[in-house]
Structures are given as structure tokens and as C-alpha cells.
């Protein structure tokens, strides 16, 4: 087994988690389809939901295992300076950046739809009672503050102050969770719904997908917090930290776009 290797690339052994998560994703897709058309497939809605839930559970389990494997591998490499080969570190960084780029393009499609539809209609449409700006403004402050706390945490990490890092990360996802609660409150009290024409469509799809990304980002931050308390990472070696922070900033920037174009500008003088 003692091969000599003249490269630092990571070539993992065969793994069951990728194909198994495909099976989970496939079952979930079929379950979703059955949920949309239970009678066409001759099943009750609850069976359809059950299939979807089973697919999701398998998918989530595989993602969890896959992620655990990554953590395991990272711990084996260690977090000392230089313990992660440069090429491997670069691969991870490139990978995360391009993943975020693809997410940006996904939101671009919905923003394009928003600009197109708000341009061709009276905006906001006359029958729509828009939301006041109070809560969205609070939300903007929450997310901007969370951008500050995550950066603060990063500085603390680089200075080797782990307890402050942990506190700041805790604060960051707490702000994320409060943001999500405010969004839910807003959805609950809005006078228009998803099916109320293009205003409802663009509003809920844009803010909904954004909210989902805040949710995912919060989970990433919670995992980060957990790993920090278990002693992972060092002042020099904390790629997962940075990837999470990038993702969080991306979510932040999307929100600025939403606040500006969806809430603030169309509302004009309405407070």
C-alpha cells in the first residue's frame, strides 16, 4: 500500500452516498409528482406525501453522511498550517465560488421575470395592498448586522480567539433565524397571496427562494458552530468557515436586491 505519489490531489475511494442520494432525490421527485397528480396515479394524497417524505429522508440522510465523511476527511488531514495541500484547498475554493455563481444565475432568472413583469404592468397593481416597509427594513438591518457578525467571527478566528468566534457565529445564525421568523410573520399578515396575479407570483417566489437560502445558510452556520465547539479549524486553516461566510454574504446581497427593487422602489411614498 505504500505507493509513492507525486501529486496532492484527493482521489476518494468509491462511495455509496452519491448514488444513494440520487436514488433519494429520484424518489422525492416522483413523490412530488404523485403529490401534484394523486388521482392520475390512482393513489391517495397521503400515500403521495409519504413517498415524497421517504425520498426526502433518504436524500437528507445521504447528504448528512456525505457531509460527515467530508468532516472526517478534513479532521484526518488536520487543521495545521500546510496540512491541506494547496491544490486541494484551491479546488474547494473554486468549487464553492462556481456553485455560488450558479445560484446567482438562478436568482437572475427570477429577477429578470420581476423586471419584465413589473415593467409591463402598473406596479404595484392597483388591486394590491402592498406591505409597509417597517418589517422589511428591520429585516435588512438584521441581515446586514449578520454580515458584520460573520466577518467579526472571521477576524476572531484569524486571531485565534475561538470563544469570540463561536459567540459571533451563534449571533449570526440567531439573526438568520429571527429574519426567517419575521418573514413568516410578514407572509402571514400579507393581504395578497401567491395566486394574486404577477405581484404575488414575483413577490413570493423571489422572497421564498431567498428565505430558503437563508435557511440553508443558517444550517451551514449551525454546523460551523458545532464544529468550532468540537475543536475543528485553526487560525490558518478553516475553509469550511470561509465557504459558509461567502454563502452567507451571497444571501445577504440577494436580499439587498430584493429590498431595493421589490419592497422599496415600487412602494414610493407608501409607509
Amino acid at each position: 500500500m505504500a505507493h509513492h505519489h507525486d501529486h496532492d490531489f484527493f482521489i476518494p475511494a468509491p462511495s455509496i452516498w452519491a448514488p444513494l442520494s440520487c436514488i433519494g432525490g429520484g424518489i422525492m421527485a416522483f413523490g412530488f409528482l404523485f403529490t401534484l397528480h394523486p388521482t392520475d396515479f390512482g393513489m391517495s394524497a397521503s400515500i403521495a406525501h409519504l413517498i415524497m417524505a421517504m425520498g426526502f429522508t433518504l436524500l437528507a440522510f445521504c447528504v448528512f453522511q456525505w457531509w460527515r465523511l467530508l468532516v472526517h476527511e478534513a479532521r484526518h488531514r488536520g487543521f495545521k498550517e500546510g496540512s491541506v495541500p494547496v491544490v486541494l484547498d484551491l479546488a474547494n475554493r473554486y468549487g464553492m465560488v462556481f456553485f455560488i455563481a450558479s445560484e446567482v444565475m438562478f436568482f437572475a432568472a427570477f429577477f429578470a421575470a420581476f423586471f419584465y413583469l413589473s415593467g409591463m404592468n402598473v406596479w404595484p397593481p392597483e388591486n394590491i395592498e402592498t406591505l409597509t416597509l417597517h418589517l422589511p427594513t428591520v429585516n435588512t438591518l438584521l441581515l446586514l448586522t449578520s454580515g458584520v457578525t460573520v466577518t467579526w467571527a472571521h477576524h476572531a478566528m484569524q486571531e485565534g480567539n475561538r470563544s469570540r468566534t463561536r459567540k459571533m457565529i451563534f449571533l449570526t445564525y440567531l439573526l438568520g433565524v429571527i429574519f426567517l421568523s419575521c418573514q413568516m410573520y410578514e407572509y402571514h399578515h400579507a393581504s395578497f397571496a401567491l395566486h394574486d396575479g404577477v405581484y404575488g407570483s414575483t413577490f413570493y417566489m423571489l422572497t421564498g427562494f431567498h428565505g430558503f437560502h437563508v435557511f440553508v445558510g443558517s444550517i451551514m452556520l449551525m454546523v460551523l458552530h458545532l464544529r468550532l465547539s468540537q475543536g475543528d479549524f485553526s487560525a490558518k486553516e478553516h475553509f469550511y468557515f470561509e465557504a459558509t461566510a461567502w454563502y452567507w454574504h451571497f444571501v445577504d446581497v440577494v436580499w439587498i436586491g430584493l429590498y431595493l427593487f421589490v419592497y422599496l422602489l415600487p412602494n414610493g411614498g407608501h409607509h
Partner: peptide
Amino acid sequence: RNFGTSFFNMAGGGD
């Protein structure tokens, strides 16, 4: 198709 949005539906202001 399934959740009542109007992105492409003229009746709801879509195109």
C-alpha cells in the same frame, strides 16, 4: 401550472 402563479398567464398580468 400547479400553484396558481401568473408568470406566463395573461389573466394575472403575466406574459
